[in-house]
Amino acid sequence: MTVLSAGAALIAAMIPLAAGPVAAVPVAAAAETSCRVKDDRLVEISGLVADGDGYVVVNDGADEESGRKVFYLTRKCKVSRTVSYPSRPQDTEDMARGADGTLWIGDIGDNDRDRDGIGVWRLAPGGKSPTLFRLSYPDGAHDAEALLVAGDGTPIVVTKDPLTAGVYVPERPLDTSATVPLRRAGAFRIPVTTTDNPYGFKGRFVVTGAATSPDGGRVALRTYADAFEFDVEPGGSADAVVRAIGEGTPRRIALPDEPQGESIAYTADGTALLSVSERTDGANGVDMLRYALPDAPAPIAASSAGPSAAPKKKAAEPAAAQRPDEGGIPWGALAAGGALVAAALVLGLVIARRRSR
């Protein structure tokens, strides 16, 4: 048994004792395929937003220069244009879209946890070059793959720390001439689920992407297995988003058996979530999947909805929504489960050394 499998097995054994019952399997609902991404440059898609009449995506730390761009896609997933960075990014892991159409790219990946700082790129609507803002953690390096933007335009970084993800916000307004320190404003304690995914148990306990709804009233965090959607107080400030994630009761949307699900976004009308995996099947490309949200508010007006037309076909994988009180972790019990914490440390050390894109 490898160290990884041993750590995962130990946690799996202790969760029922320390964290209460595992979430029940939700009622299945079909995921649908919106389109298929086949461009040879898009082999490690890690960030996704719906924008205008199509989508925007970025790769995860692309090895080839041709992949280190911001890619605009039509609603049929064809590349319509690209925007280059003015300097080489280190590891672009997620995207967010502000209410005004501003795009934010999270240069926040750090698999080896050895970066002195991270960055976010800001691209104005119609812009030809993004602007870099540098950030630093207050408590050492973290790997992160999830970026949100609050209604007030504040970027929010959610780490990939196992079991409990840190939520970080800038201490002061962003500044192109200086590194701005982050503060740990909150945390997301990832609920227990049983959703199938290629990484098994460990795939359910790291955050790999995030999304903000078009109206700013909801945010979603995803793992390799599930998405968790939170309602945000009116106004959508950074503090409101942090409170929603740390104190709110999310809805769970199962995202089962995606090849390597790291991206999540809302459709432009806010009625569904979109997901696209890193490309794992060569020339065949990868499907962009659409998961309807049963509890979504009324659709946003068609004039601003963008790519929300009915998908072309249904995929085989099921998806569904449920409240986390059907399987959330009672954290007082978790605090008493010292063995679970020890096992989590084992898994965290392994994940820190594993290249996961």
Rank of each mutant, 00 (worst) to 15 (best):
L221I: 05
T212H: 03
V149M: 05
G106H: 02
S237I: 05
T212D: 07
A31H: 03
R41H: 05
T176A: 15
R189H: 14
A8E: 13
T193I: 04
V158F: 06
V149L: 03
V232C: 09
P311V: 09
R183I: 14
A225P: 03
A146D: 11
A12L: 05
T154V: 15
N59W: 01
S66A: 12
N284G: 08
W104Y: 12
D287L: 02
A342G: 12
A8H: 02
R88G: 06
A296P: 07
F71T: 11
P170K: 09
T193C: 06
T194I: 06
V276E: 07
S5F: 08
A13W: 12
S263Y: 06
I264L: 15
P191N: 08
A18G: 15
L10E: 14
I351G: 03
L135V: 09
G153F: 05
T208G: 12
A210I: 01
A298W: 01
S87E: 14
E262T: 09
P89A: 02
K76D: 15
V49G: 07
K313F: 01
R113W: 08
R252E: 09
L274C: 00
A296N: 09
V206W: 00
S80K: 13
R115M: 09
R353N: 13
I45S: 02
S277H: 06
P191A: 06
A99M: 07
G285M: 07
G282T: 05
L174F: 09
R355A: 11
D231N: 07
I351S: 07
F188I: 10
G209N: 05
V49R: 02
F228K: 01
R115W: 10
A296L: 06
A50W: 00
S275H: 13
E145L: 04
D295V: 04
G261R: 01
A8T: 09
T102E: 06
S356G: 05
G261W: 00
L255D: 06
G109Y: 01
R189C: 06
A178T: 14
V158E: 05
G20S: 11
D325T: 13
M1N: 14
A225C: 06
G332S: 12
P307A: 15
A336S: 11
A185R: 03
G61H: 15
A272L: 01
A240C: 13
Y137L: 03
V207D: 03
M288I: 04
P173A: 14
S46A: 03
G151C: 10
D100A: 08
A240R: 08
K76T: 15
Q322D: 14
D287E: 15
L42D: 10
L274R: 00
D226E: 12
V232L: 07
L347F: 01
L349K: 10
A319G: 15
I105P: 05
A352L: 02
R97Y: 00
A124I: 05
A50H: 02
P330R: 14
K69T: 02
R68A: 05
A50Q: 09
V341N: 03
K314Y: 11
A321C: 07
A150N: 07
A342T: 15
D63S: 13
R279V: 07
Y266K: 10
R357Y: 11
E32P: 00
V232P: 08
L349S: 10
D51N: 11
G328T: 11
T74A: 11
A335Q: 13
A124L: 12
R222K: 15
V242N: 08
S304R: 04
H142M: 04
P311Y: 12
